[in-house]
Design a protein around this nucleic acid. Sequence first.
DNA 1: GGTGAAACGTAGGCCGT
DNA 2: ACGGCCTACGTTTCACC
Lengths: 150, 150
Amino acid sequence: MSNIDYIDDRILRVLAAEGRISNLALAERVGLSASACLRRVAALEKSGVIRGYRAVLSPEKTGIGFVAYVTVGLGVHTKESQLAFERVITRAPEVKECHNITGNVEYLLRIEVTDLAAYKEFHTEVLGTLPQVSAITSYVVMGSPKDDRA
Amino acid sequence: MSNIDYIDDRILRVLAAEGRISNLALAERVGLSASACLRRVAALEKSGVIRGYRAVLSPEKTGIGFVAYVTVGLGVHTKESQLAFERVITRAPEVKECHNITGNVEYLLRIEVTDLAAYKEFHTEVLGTLPQVSAITSYVVMGSPKDDRA
DNA sequence: GGTGAAACGTAGGCCGT
DNA sequence: ACGGCCTACGTTTCACC
């Protein structure tokens, strides 16, 4: 079992903020020797608490100039139509997130594209062509005062 | 200027997926020597294309059992009331993201808490006590068929 | 959980293109 | 301006206490 104690918690906090910190520096920060620290990190990775590591890229500098959240409602609510929709959405690179939500619509998507023109393209060519989709509402992101995941 | 060429692009793609890959392995993957690769990564970090690195943690295994998106509308639309709202929201640990969006409401928040009880607490004790807030709508996340940021 | 040592990776000077 | 080579130094990793 992987019960997270106080030190694990500190390790996770540090790694969540500085994913590429050296094990040595991490060990020092949490007050452990390098080997003990490494063993804990390895255990956290193996047990799935730590899923992986990623570089956080600047959206603007990597050509993302337009971000929007889109709610999507399906006309048919069968399992098959949901799976068909999710299959297409999962393949679409513009869709960074797809959440199944409660409320009057089924899905909330996060879309990241270069510009408004690219979004229009996505809207008509991808969303517009899906037979299951009956309602689309776009919320353009004008800014993100807080974004811990970015 | 930092113009991203084909190799930079490959580097970024690899680091976005495997943030803790060694420079040596990264160099091999993109077909560069270790020093050339390291220099490119350093340049990408310095120029801000790479903002940082983070460990991706499993929500369930770190005690996040309830995720919701919440739209918030402000009664007053002055700059001051927006800033006051953002100040409180930025400090709240439950709020992982706060986006300023177009549409009939001003904000879209992502909330992560342990359970429904904690969410109720946040809803009434934080959101409910902000004088600027005039409309709150919660969309509980039941699943995320795709989440590239997680 | 800590120690130590071998294996491995990083970082930077230097030179060629 | 950019890539490859070499090397001193730091870090990781693992058997052992």
